[in-house]
Nucleic acid binder design. Structure first.
Length: 444
RNA sequence: GGAGAGAUGGCCGAGUAGGUCGAAGGCGCUCGCCUGCUAAGCGAGUAUACUGGGUAAACCGGUAUCGAGGGUUCGAAUCCCUCUCUCUCCGCCA
C-alpha cells in the first residue's frame, strides 16, 4: 500500500464542536441503568454498567469542585485586571497561583476519568428496538416474507464457481495467485456483468428511488470508523494501512454516513438519501473454513450501498422503504428471496433493528444473505455528532441514520449464475440487465 | 519532495505591545413595528456542549470552546512549541 502522505503518523482532524462519541445518551443511561442493562443482555452480551455508574459519579463530583475553582480564578483575575496598580495584587496573584495549580491537577484527573469513561461507553452496543424479536441465536431470526418462484431445473443445478470457471468468467486460481485466498479475478463477460450490475443498481436508486449518488474515498481515518461503530471493538476485522492511520472501508456505510459527521443539518434538507458504489474490504477474521469456495466470502467485494439521514419520528417507516428499495433490485432481476428480521442475539453492534434479505441460490440449495438493512436510530448520530435543526428556532437534535445494501454485487452475480443457468452450461441475462450488457442475452 | 500564506460564530470579516472578547461590524435568520401589496425602513433577538438548580418544560447559574494538542501567565483568540488541514508557486505524476 502506498501512503497518501508520508512522514505523518498522527492526525488531528477538525473536530466537531460537540464532543463526539457520546454513544448512548449518558443522561438516559444514568436514569435508566437497570432497564438498559436488561435490554442489552438480550443481545447475549455481558454488559457491566456498574463501572459506568461509578465513573460517572466520580466525574461529576470532581467537575463540580474544579468548576468552582475556575469560577473563582476567573473572578479574581478580572479584579486584578481592573487594578491600576498591580503591586496591590501581589497577594491575590500568589493565591491564584495555587488555585491554578490545583485546577491543573484536577484537570488531569478528570481527563483520565473521561478517557476511561469514553473507552467504556464506546464498547456498549446499541439498544435493540422494542419490535426486535428476542432470541438466543440466528435460529431465532423471524422470516417475514418470501418473494418469487424458485426456479425448477431439468438437471442438477450447479454452484456458481463451477459455472463461472467453465464459462471462463471467474478465475479463482489466478485471483489467489495475484493476492491470496478469497480474491477472485473476473474475466470477460464476468467482469462486464459485475459492472452492469453496479450501473443497474445505481441507476435504479438514483433515477427511481431518489437517492443522490456519492463516490467516497475507499479508505478512511479512525474517527470515521469510530463514528459508525466499527471501532474500537472490531479493529481485527479491518485492513489497516502501513505508515498512515487509515483503514480500507469494510462498507460504504462508513464514508457515506460520516459525510455529515460533526454537522448540524437543516430540517428542510431532511430526509437525505445517498447511494454509493464502493469496493469493500474485510479480513473475515474468525471465518476460516467457511464459504471457502466461490465468490460468497471475499476479502474484497463490490457493493452498492443505501444510506439515509432522517428525522427520528420517521426512521422506522424509512427503514421499511429502504428495505423495499433493496428488494426492488431482486424483483427486477427476477431473483427469488426472503426477508428475515434479525433477533436480538444476531443484531450488529450499532443496529437497533435489522432486516436481512436472503437470495435463493439453487446451486447450493439455500438462501444466502445479499442485503442487510438497518436502523441505527441515534446511535451513530451520537458517535459522529450528526444533528439537525428543524427550523431556525429549534434546538439541534440527533438524526437517525439507516443503511442497507442495495445490493452486494458479487452475491447478486452469484445468484444470477445459479438461478439463470441452463442445461448447456450457459447463463441467461435477466431482461432488465441486458441494456447494461450491450444487449447480450446469454453468456456462453 | 521544495518554498510561502492561512485556519475566528450559519456565512463574510475585525480583533496580534495578553486583561472587562463568546468575541466589533456586515450578511443571513427569528419575533415585533411601520408602509395599501412588494421592496426598503425601525426595534429586539440569534452558537454549542457539559454541569448545578428547577417539574428530565420554560427559565436561572457555572465551566469550556476563536483548527487540534501542549506550554508560559493571576489571566491567552492574542506569546511559545508540536501536529493537522486549506490555499499559492516550483518539481513529480494518473
Amino acid at each position: 500500500m502506498t501512503c497518501p502522505r508520508s512522514n505523518a503518523n498522527k492526525y488531528n482532524f477538525v473536530r466537531p464542536k460537540v464532543k463526539a462519541f457520546p454513544m448512548l445518551d449518558v443522561k438516559y443511561l444514568r436514569d435508566n441503568l437497570e432497564s438498559v442493562e436488561a435490554r442489552l443482555k438480550t443481545r447475549g452480551e455481558a454488559v457491566n454498567l456498574g463501572a459506568f455508574k461509578a465513573l460517572d459519579e466520580r466525574r461529576r463530583g470532581l467537575l463540580k469542585v474544579n468548576e468552582e475553582r475556575k469560577a473563582l480564578r476567573n473572578k479574581v483575575s478580572e479584579e486584578i485586571s481592573r487594578l491600576k496598580d498591580k503591586s496591590q495584587a501581589q497577594g491575590r496573584i500568589a493565591e491564584m497561583r495555587e488555585v491554578s495549580q490545583s485546577i491543573k491537577s484536577l484537570d488531569e484527573e478528570l481527563g483520565r476519568i473521561e478517557e476511561e469513561l469514553q473507552g467504556l461507553l464506546l464498547t456498549i452496543p446499541n439498544i435493540p428496538n422494542e419490535s426486535v424479536p428476542v432470541g438466543d441465536s440466528e435460529d431465532d431470526n423471524v422470516e417475514i416474507r418470501r418473494w418469487g418462484t424458485l426456479p425448477e431445473f431439468s438437471f442438477t443445478p450447479r454452484p456458481h464457481w463451477e459455472i463461472g470457471e467453465e464459462l471462463g468468467i471467474l478465475d479463482f486460481e489466478r485471483g489467489a495467485k495475484l493476492t491470496g485466498a478469497r480474491f477472485t479475478l473476473y474475466r470477460g463477460s464476468g467482469a462486464r456483468l459485475e459492472r452492469a450490475l453496479i450501473n443497474f443498481m445505481l441507476d435504479l436508486h438514483t433515477g427511481v428511488h431518489n437517492y443522490i449518488e456519492m463516490l467516497p474515498p475507499f479508505m478512511v481515518n479512525r474517527e470515521s470508523m469510530t463514528g459508525t461503530g466499527q471501532l474500537p471493538k472490531f479493529e481485527e476485522d479491518l485492513f489497516h494501512l502501513d505508515g498512515v492511520d487509515y483503514f480500507l472501508i469494510p462498507t460504504a456505510e462508513v464514508p457515506v454516513t460520516n459525510i455529515h459527521r460533526g454537522e448540524i443539518l437543516k430540517g428542510a434538507d431532511l430526509p437525505l438519501y445517498y447511494t454509493a458504489y464502493t469496493p469493500c474490504f474485510r479480513k473475515e477474521a474468525g471465518s476460516y473454513g467457511k464459504d471457502t469456495r466461490g465468490l460468497i466470502r471475499q476479502h474484497q467485494f463490490n457493493k452498492v450501498e443505501l444510506v439515509k439521514f432522517v428525522r427520528p419520528a420517521d426512521s422506522y417507516h424509512e427503514l421499511e422503504a429502504l428495505l423495499g428499495n433493496a428488494e426492488k433490485v431482486l424483483q427486477l432481476l427476477g431473483l427469488p428471496y426472503r426477508v428475515v428480521t434479525l433477533c436480538t442475539a444476531d443484531l450488529g453492534f450499532s443496529a437497533a433493528k435489522t432486516y436481512d434479505i436472503e437470495v435463493w441460490l439453487p446451486g447450493q440449495n439455500t438462501y444466502r444473505e445479499i442485503s442487510s438493512c438497518s436502523n441505527f436510530e441515534d446511535f451513530q448520530a451520537r458517535r459522529a455528532a450528526i444533528r439537525y435543526r428543524e427550523d431556525d428556532k429549534a434546538k439541534p437534535d440527533y438524526v437517525h441514520t439507516l443503511n442497507g445494501s442495495g445490493l452486494a454485487v458479487g452475491r447478486t452475480l452469484v445468484a444470477i449464475l445459479e438461478n439463470y443457468q441452463q442445461a448447456d452450461g450457459s447463463v441467461l441475462i435477466p431482461e432488465a440487465l441486458r441494456p447494461y450488457m450491450g444487449g447480450v442475452a446469454k453468456i456462453g
